[in-house]
Amino acid sequence: MKLKQQGFSLIELVIVIVILGLLAATAIPRFLNVTDDAEDASVDGVAGGLATAVSFVRAQWEVDGRLNASVLLDGTSVSLDTRFGYPTGTTNTNATAMNSTRCQEVFDSVLQNAPRNVLANQDASDVRYTVSVLGGAGGSSISIDGITVNNLDLCVYHQVASLVLNPTSGVPTPAPDLTTADAKGVIYNPGTGQVLSFTQTPFTP
């Protein structure tokens, strides 16, 4: 006795293909947003960690009686501006004399296992963040002595995944700032201790 083998009909196949097409049309946009959401979450996580570490430095400075130009944080000496009490590097003690290297020192010295980073004019192919400074862009703040200090600097930490790198040199092109399209990152003001994350540009601190 022969068994009759029967496959799917053309109509059944068409129905399956239509259903798969509908599922794909609704699911693909969600998967496309996963990368952006993950990058945003990463930036927010780094910003939260940096803000916590900055507050630890300030708290230790308060405990020390506001007398020292540096504090010891997890065995690492962190310098700060005695007018404000927020970290400014490993040797620098002036929130209006920051540069990219000093901003990098803040990032690396206050964060445990800081994300790999380089200065914004270096090869960023194998790191997660670039570091730059915006001189005088941080506005003003009132010191503990009641004196207004103007032209505070801003440290900017750009997420490399949101930048365009030169395919040959690996250097971000153009040099990233707060107007770079689609750039994401973290801003730190050493005069106010404020840490902000940004996931949309242009950004106004």
Rank of each mutant, 00 (worst) to 15 (best):
I144H: 10
V78N: 05
Y129N: 01
S100M: 02
F203E: 10
W61C: 07
V164C: 02
R58C: 06
A181M: 07
L22V: 14
L20I: 15
V127C: 02
R116K: 11
T82F: 09
S79W: 03
V149M: 13
V171Y: 02
N166L: 01
D37C: 04
F84N: 04
P167C: 03
T192H: 12
V57L: 11
A120L: 01
S197M: 03
L178D: 14
V195R: 07
E105Y: 11
P172M: 05
T204F: 09
T88G: 03
D108P: 11
V118T: 01
S77P: 05
N117M: 02
V18C: 09
V43R: 03
V18R: 02
R58T: 14
R102W: 07
R102T: 12
E105F: 14
D64E: 14
G89N: 12
L111Q: 05
G139R: 05
N151Q: 14
A95M: 08
L152Y: 10
G146D: 10
N117W: 04
G45T: 10
D145R: 10
R128W: 10
D153F: 12
S79V: 03
R58W: 11
G45D: 05
T96G: 11
E105P: 11
E12Q: 09
D37F: 08
E12L: 13
L152K: 12
S79K: 10
T90E: 06
I11A: 14
A124F: 01
Q200V: 13
Q5E: 10
S42F: 15
V133P: 00
V149Q: 13
A51F: 02
F107K: 08
V16G: 08
G45E: 01
N150I: 15
G185Q: 10
E12N: 15
N121A: 03
S125Q: 03
G193N: 13
P115H: 07
G193W: 14
N68C: 03
Y86V: 13
G89W: 08
V160Q: 01
V133H: 01
Y188G: 05
V127E: 04
G7L: 09
T93E: 07
D74T: 12
T148H: 08
L20M: 12
D81M: 05
T101R: 04
F31C: 11
D36Q: 14
L154I: 07
E105D: 15
Q159P: 02
V78C: 07
D36H: 14
V16H: 05
C103M: 12
D81E: 04
T168I: 01
D123L: 02
L134W: 02
A95V: 06
I28C: 06
G45V: 07
L13I: 15
V106R: 06
E105S: 15
N33P: 05
D81R: 08
Q104F: 10
A161Q: 06
L10R: 10
V71Y: 04
A41I: 08
T35W: 08
G135K: 11
L152A: 12
G185C: 13
I142S: 09
Q104D: 11
G138W: 05
V127S: 05
E12A: 10
L32R: 09
A24V: 10
M98T: 06
